[in-house]
Computed example of a mutant assay.
Amino acid sequence: MVRIATFNVSMEEENYPIEQELEKGSSVLQYHLSTGRNQQMRNIAEILQRTRPDIVLLNEFDFIEDRSKGVDAFQQNYLSIAQHESVSPINYPHIFLAPTNTGAPSPYDFDQDGVASGVGGDAWGFGKYPGQYGMVLLSRFPINKEEARTLQLFKWSDMPGALQPKHPETNQPWFSQEQWQALRLSSKSHWDVPVMVGEKRIHVLAQHPTPPVFDGPENRNGLRNHDELRLTADYLSEETSTYIYDDKGNRGGLSGDRFVILGDLNASIYSDATYPGAMERLLNHPKVNSDFIPTSRAGAAVVPELPYAKEFTAAWKSRADYVLPSKSGFNVIDGAVFWPEKNSPLYRLVESREASSDHRLVWLELEMVD
């Protein structure tokens, strides 16, 4: 058995107060990671200690290249310390970390406000500083880093039939030809990370597409979200992945049949903000097992009249976070959304965004089969 989870932890710089003057070269996030005292981080660690995933993707964990000040500090000062008398520490000896497009400065005025600022809407992916809203993969099992693939640099225009945004008034392209030829598709990055469970390999397909909102009538974020999801769907099959290349220049898609798609996908079949067909392409893919939907009773209580509210993974009333295994190589045994009800003593872990996150951890228990 292997338990695999995804969790948008909202661990980005702007979430945290400054408690004292920082050392030169440090950040507010790094300070709180170093102390072991931040209650939000303690709660996030406790959620992980209670659910105990073997493999977990943390979305919105700012990219800090110096691991000793970032993910290693989170392990040492939070995960390795029991956060409640009823839980045990949890250790992830294997970590995959790589840069993202968020906040990485571009020379272009992508948002067309008249200023090429290099940040925010003018970065390769929206972010106010490099690495904001990054991601990190934690694993109890070995990671084959040599064969891991990242698609951070793949150009949106290199996708055949890409949904190029247009000015609604003129029907002309939103981006100039130079911008369109340069713009990267992934708002963060797309990863294919092989994790070895004994002799069996799991391809962890990690991502965090842009929210399909925060733009204008041109819907550039909605179209980008659609095509980021399409990139994952196309990656799964030989016949649809011929156009794809990774950051090392290697072409083609998945080199195996056992995979799990992980991440805050910012898309739902029930959301009007999601471009039509974006999630259906993944959920209905012939290689994806989407039959088991993780749920929670607390989510169901958010909007009791909606039968699908039990599927919510975010406080803002949506199923946004997914663990989607391949049909081949797994039997789905169990799964859930970690969302304690209001009458539970564990509700303190999710009662607000400040308590932990506005997202909930989602997990599946998978039996590996030949």
Rank of each mutant, 00 (worst) to 15 (best):
R3H: 03
I4S: 12
I4W: 04
T6N: 02
N8A: 07
N8W: 10
S10T: 00
M11G: 00
E12W: 12
Y16T: 01
E19P: 00
E19F: 02
G25P: 01
S26G: 05
S27N: 04
Q30S: 11
R37F: 03
Q39P: 06
I44A: 06
L48V: 15
R50N: 07
R50I: 07
I55R: 04
V56A: 13
L57E: 13
L58P: 01
N59H: 05
E60C: 03
E60S: 09
E65W: 07
G70A: 04
D72T: 00
Q76K: 15
Q76F: 00
I81L: 12
Q83N: 07
H84Y: 09
L97N: 13
T100K: 03
N101D: 05
S106H: 02
P107Q: 05
Y108H: 13
V115D: 13
A116Y: 04
V119E: 13
G120P: 05
D122E: 11
P130Y: 03
Y133L: 13
Y133E: 13
L137E: 04
F141W: 15
F141P: 02
P142W: 14
I143E: 10
I143S: 08
A148V: 06
W156K: 02
M159N: 08
L163C: 05
P165S: 12
Q172H: 04
E178F: 08
A182P: 00
L185K: 03
S186E: 15
S187F: 03
K188G: 02
H190S: 14
P194G: 02
V197I: 15
V197W: 01
E199R: 09
E199A: 11
K200T: 15
R201W: 06
L205Y: 11
Q207T: 15
P209S: 09
P211A: 12
F214G: 00
P217Q: 13
E218G: 04
L223Q: 13
N225Y: 02
E228M: 10
T232A: 06
A233K: 06
Y235D: 12
E239P: 03
Y243I: 07
K248G: 03
N250S: 06
L262M: 12
G263Q: 10
L265Q: 09
N266S: 12
A273V: 04
Y275F: 05
G277H: 06
R281Y: 07
L283H: 02
N284W: 03
P286Q: 08
V288E: 12
V288K: 04
V302A: 13
P307Y: 07
Y308A: 04
F312Q: 08
A314K: 05
W316S: 13
A320Q: 14
A320W: 14
V323H: 07
K327H: 10
S328D: 15
G329P: 09
F330G: 09
V337K: 06
W339H: 15
P345Q: 02
Y347A: 10
V350M: 03
R353E: 14
D358Q: 12
R360S: 13
W363D: 14
M368D: 12
